[in-house]
Amino acid sequence: MRTPGFWYGPPGLAAALLAPLGALYGAAGRRRMAGTVPHRAAAPVICIGNLVAGGAGKTPVGLAVAAALARRGVAAHALTRGHGGREPGPLRVDPARHGAADVGDEALLLAAAGPCWVARDRAAGADAAVAAGARAIVMDDGFQNPGLAKDLSLLVADGAVGFGNGRLIPAGPLRERVADGLRRADALVVLGEDRAGVAAQVAARTPGLPVLHARLEPAAADAADLRGRRLLAFAGIGRPEKFFATLEALGAELVQRVPFADHHPFRPAEIAALIDRAATLGALPVTTAKDAVRLPPGLRARLRVLPVAVAWDDPGALDALLDRLPLTPRPNGGPHGEAA
């Protein structure tokens, strides 16, 4: 689904007309929360969630949290629903055997860095990870899923757009009311410049809730290589404009921007046409790491992929949050659990 433009503007006629449906959506979510007894896993669960539909940067933050746990010698496994994939799980992701159509694109990104499980039943997925040696679970999304108890919940917000027009789906991007979500969170991560005033909104609604600031950055070598280059950029993420802005900030010249819907399943003919169009324009075709795992394998080598990673303004703030958890390092200090 392509994100409706009115979600991130001042509330207008479309938002007003859809507000009753948004109220029903919110009420259904609150009933689900109230009527579910969460399962407690045998290892701490760290949830990386958000309050809006679409990409806010959860997966890069989850990777950064898993890396921080690995530095402590804690065997952390990732857990995700596998949005866009056909496998219900619990299934340990093997990038050599599984594709995006099997497990979704986020799962493949997470599995490239460490053990990752796909499970529509998050509780069953957490138990499978623990049985395979996980001493911490980093759950990508699932903040609004009450089936699995969370020991630490980090909400991620895109500093450029924040919580959008403040309305619930479908009148706006919110999965639940901002105040409700902030009350259940342990901290909020603002990615990028806080142009939407997210930190001020959090201070007004939930004084004392820690706010961490970070940004998504490409590796220095990638940034230097793309500076001054003519690019045809395409992306099928929650907000493709964020990727385009990243490229422009590097000093690249974007001769064409091609947005797709989030999780778009790329067809070979589509990608071949983009590559041909880039050649006609004298440009280099470039996309995101999340999109790259959905590309036809035979065409990936013909374009450029720009991976990004989280850079924290204050890395110690994340460490302080992790210090709250009963984390047990592996006896040999290794970062990963045993194979299932």
Results as ranks from 00 to 15, higher is better:
Asp151Phe: 11
Lys150Phe: 09
Asp158Leu: 00
Asp158Gly: 12
Val130Glu: 11
Val130Pro: 12
Ala129Gln: 00
Ala131Tyr: 05
Ala119Pro: 14
Phe143Ile: 11
Asp121Ile: 12
Ala124Phe: 08
Leu154Pro: 07
Ala124Asp: 02
Ala128Met: 02
Asn145Lys: 04
Arg122Phe: 14
Asp121Met: 13
Met139Glu: 05
Ala124Gln: 11
Gly162Cys: 11
Asp141Met: 06
Val118Lys: 08
Leu148Ile: 02
Leu154Cys: 07
Asp141Gly: 03
Gly142Gln: 00
Cys116Met: 12
Val138Asn: 00
Ile137Asn: 03
Val156Leu: 04
Leu155Tyr: 08
Gly133Tyr: 09
Leu148Cys: 00
Ala126Ser: 10
Gly147Ala: 15
Ala123Gln: 06
Ile137Gln: 07
Gly159Arg: 12
Val130Asp: 10
Val156Asp: 03
Gly133Cys: 00
Pro115Glu: 08
Val156Phe: 03
Ala157Leu: 14
Asn145Ala: 12
Phe163Gln: 08
Ser153Tyr: 05
Arg122Glu: 13
Val161Cys: 14
Val130Thr: 01
Gly125Gln: 13
Gly159Glu: 06
Gly164His: 02
Ala160Phe: 03
Ala134Leu: 12
Leu155Ala: 14
Gly142Cys: 01
Ala160Met: 10
Leu148Gln: 03
Asp127His: 04
Met139Thr: 02
Ala149Leu: 11
Arg122Ser: 14
Gly142Glu: 00
Gly159Ser: 09
Ala157Phe: 12
Arg135Thr: 10
Gly164Ile: 05
Asn145Gly: 02
Ala131Glu: 15
Ala128Thr: 04
Gly125Lys: 09
Trp117Leu: 14
Val161Ser: 12
Ala134Gly: 09
Met139Ala: 01
Leu154His: 05
Asp127Gln: 11
Trp117Lys: 03
Pro146Gly: 01
Ala124Pro: 10
Gly142Leu: 00
Gly164Cys: 09
Asp140Tyr: 13
Ala134Arg: 12
Leu148Val: 07
Cys116Glu: 07
Asn145Arg: 04
Ala136Pro: 08
Gly114Lys: 10
Ala128Gln: 01
Gln144Asn: 08
Pro146Tyr: 03
Val118Ile: 08
Asp141Tyr: 11
Lys150Asn: 07
Asp158Cys: 07
Pro146Lys: 05
Trp117Gly: 09
Val118Tyr: 00
Pro146Glu: 09
Asn145Leu: 03
Ala129Asn: 10
Val130Ser: 13
Ile137Phe: 12
Leu152Pro: 08
Asp158Val: 08
Asn145Phe: 04
Ala131Ser: 14
Ala157Tyr: 01
Phe163Val: 04
Ala149Gly: 10
Ala136Arg: 05
Gly147Cys: 14
Val138Trp: 01
Pro115Arg: 04
Ala119Leu: 07
Asp141Gln: 10
Pro146Asp: 02
Ile137His: 03
Gly164Ser: 02
Asp140Phe: 01
Gly147Leu: 03
Cys116Ala: 15
Gly114Pro: 06
Ile137Glu: 07
Gly142Asn: 00
Phe163His: 01
Ala123Met: 07
Leu152Gln: 05
Arg122Tyr: 05
Gly125Asn: 13
Phe143Gly: 00
Gly164Arg: 06
Asn145Asp: 15
Ala134Val: 13
Lys150Leu: 11
Asp158Phe: 01
Gly133Met: 01
Ala149Gln: 08
Val130Phe: 13
Leu155Arg: 07
Trp117Thr: 06
Ser153Asn: 04
Val130Met: 01
Ser153Thr: 15
Val130Leu: 13
Arg135Lys: 13
Leu148His: 02
Ala119Thr: 01
Gly159Tyr: 13
Val161Met: 13
Gln144Phe: 05
Leu152Ala: 12
